[in-house]
């Protein structure tokens, strides 16, 4: 027997701003007014000093690959065409984003990358098609 469960998750204040930014083709981070720490995805509180946050800013600099993997497995456990996953961080910003890497790019640690957006965007992490090598 299987009982399906259905949930809706409001994104909250900070993450809604992040998702709206993606719809506009922008990466939005939060900045703590007390300790000045920037964080992506943005938060409405500072995990360092627990200060409330209402300052959000666009990340205009390039990202860089902290770690990567070429995966041969799909979510159902079956063998799949290789997909390269990267964890991307940004200079001067804490946190980061998991996403896919442009398949035409060879992954390497510290590779400078930028997001590539889909033409039609809905306010989702999937508005980013993948990260690609920044020229």
């Amino acid at each position: 027997m299987s009982i399906e469960s259905f949930y809706e998750y409001p994104a909250g204040i900070a993450l809604s701003i992040f998702l709206q930014g993606l719809r506009e083709g922008k990466l939005i981070a939060s900045r703590c007014g007390k300790c000045n720490t920037s964080h992506i995805p943005p938060r409405s509180y500072c995990a360092k000093c627990l200060n409330p946050i209402n300052d959000f800013h666009e990340i205009t600099g390039l990202g860089f690959v902290e770690t990567f993997t070429c995966s041969h497995i799909s979510l159902d456990g079956s063998q799949a065409q290789p997909v390269t996953w990267v964890y991307v961080r940004f200079e001067g910003v804490e946190g980061g984003l998991l996403h896919r890497l442009d398949p035409s790019v060879a992954p390497e640690k510290a590779l400078k990358v930028r997001p590539v957006y889909h033409g039609e965007r809905i306010g989702s992490i999937l508005d980013i098609k993948w990260f690609t090598k920044a020229e």
Binding site: Y9, F18, F68, S71, L75, D76, W85, L98
Partner: peptide
């Protein structure tokens, strides 16, 4: 794998549908 994926953020991780071993591999590489 889908059950484990449910332990991650529904907005910035789950929609990407990585197998949990992908996350372990990121750790291993690092």
């Amino acid at each position: 794998p889908e059950v484990v994926l449910n332990s991650f953020d529904p907005h910035v991780v789950r929609p990407l549908t990585p197998h949990p071993y992908v996350l372990a591999a990121l750790d291993a590489r690092a």
